[in-house]
């Protein structure tokens, strides 16, 4: 016996085969962001008022650059997942919703890439 409604069956609507992927990715990135964020906040506070040489030297170490890249990747993945849900909840026009989702995804990718490339430039300068 199928649990699907007759209307759902006739329209061909059903599982998008996505399952708990979104929920799980949001939690995993959240978990990764706890230590990364705490580390970054401590680092930024201790860099208060630092000049370019000090910041470049800090970001130029492989460990720091690696952690910064992980922070950027997890941040933008997590941010996109969150913004996606907010758009899906509040934007009811199908056209604006899809446009908003695409724009948010594009912004996340461009910003993440800019951040990661900046870190790599500081590492290899």
């Amino acid at each position: 016996m199928s649990l699907r409604s007759p209307l759902g069956r006739v329209r061909g609507l059903g599982s998008a085969k996505d399952g708990t992927g979104h929920w799980w990715a949001q939690r995993l990135t959240a978990l990764a962001l706890i230590p990364l964020t705490v580390w970054f906040c401590v680092a930024v506070v201790s860099l208060s008022g630092a000049d370019h040489a000090a910041v470049a030297a800090w970001a130029g170490s492989p460990l720091v650059a690696g952690l910064l890249i992980l922070l950027i990747a997890a941040t933008f993945y997590h941010a996109y997942l969150g913004v996606q849900v907010v758009i899906e909840d509040y934007v009811h026009s199908e056209m604006f919703k899809i446009a908003g989702l695409l724009l948010a995804k594009a912004a996340a990718i461009v910003l993440a890439l800019t951040g990661i490339l900046s870190v790599l430039l500081l590492l290899f300068r």
Partner: peptide, 21 residues
């Protein structure tokens, strides 16, 4: 959460500025 998503602009700007010189 939404405010922080916008705030990532500052993070990226700060890193890009450091990379620029």
């Amino acid at each position: 959460g939404v405010a922080l998503a916008v705030g990532t602009l500052l993070l990226v700007y700060w890193l890009a500025a450091a990379a620029s010189g």
